[in-house]
Write a protein that binds this DNA or RNA. Structure first.
Lengths: 158, 158
DNA sequence: ATGTTAATGGTAATCATTATCAATAAGGAA
DNA sequence: TTCCTTATTGATAATGATTACCATTAACAT
């Protein structure tokens, strides 16, 4: 089962946002709602289309701008999967570490987004996180493990 | 120290290539040479400019096409770092596993490319590789650990 | 040496993302 | 509540990386 999708917008964001000096606007509400109800990674255009259904006055520019803002505040992450457009997803709701894996087939260019880490793997990633903070002064908020290789289907075809 | 850059093109590729039915052409030689001598990830344009110096007849289209071919054959990997253009790097020369880490600052959008894995981390990644093969039929050729968060400089400024 | 055909490279087209800028609305102050 | 300041919006144009097209060239098998 996947705990990353369809859980609604992060609770309490309006207060947090206002505290930062940002305004809580209708487009921002809508976009966060769309992201919160997504069942998968969405592209900017998909987010725009879904937002448009809820609020037809919205503009694509605002979508991009809002996504940018949300990225900078660590609310979402941007995923570049090599298909020419980026995808976005809510981040950081899973107990301090949000990390999942992408299997990217270099042949057919499809990618599989999986989310199953073993205990060992989670432990190592947490350790790594601490190490990066100590060594590079970098605070990790989320991570993606991108694996490049060949998928099942492409192997069959050979 | 970094063992990933400046080591020259992968040995023996012409034979391997011809075996696949591809032709070994001048542009392909040049591009592989440029990639082999790179001291960092290069963008397509950088690869084009460096190739141009060695062989002015080369075209940008060929660079893109060749990079694509090399990706499909697992010779290089493409890295999308969120700056609007992709970067490329020779892959798979380090004993079966080519894996490095990117620290991507969601605030200033810079990224640091590091390459230091501990023994533990390498062991876990190798295990993960096997697990992905068993469970998903996916053969991993290389991987990148993308960490999102806040860099040292940005923290100072607050 | 020659013919077949993969590969090339100039140019035009595509398409995601950004910049511009006048109009609008969030939210603090009166 | 009403007003004011200014962050935010959205339509449109611009940008810039990547891809499509197609006539020409050059690998390399014979």
């Amino acid at each position: 089962m996947n705990h990353r999708f369809g859980k609604g917008p992060p609770k309490g964001w309006p207060g947090h946002f206002r505290g930062q000096g940002y305004r809580v606007t209708v487009p921002r509400r809508i976009i966060l709602q769309v992201l919160g109800n997504a069942e998968k990674h969405l592209s900017a255009e998909e987010i725009y289309l879904r937002s448009y259904k809820l609020y037809p006055a919205i503009g694509l520019t605002t979508v991009y701008r809002t996504l940018d803002l949300l990225i900078k505040n660590g609310v979402i992450i941007k995923i570049e999967s090599g298909e020419g457009r980026a995808r976005y997803e809510l981040a950081g709701r899973v107990e301090g570490i949000n990390c999942h894996q992408h299997l990217f087939c270099v042949n057919c260019r499809n990618f599989l987004d999986i989310s199953d880490l073993t205990e060992d793997e989670i432990a190592v990633i947490k350790k790594m996180k601490e190490r990066l903070l100590k060594k590079y002064g970098f605070t990790v908020k989320s991570c993606i493990l991108q694996f490049y290789g060949e998928c099942k289907n492409c192997k069959k075809k050979e």
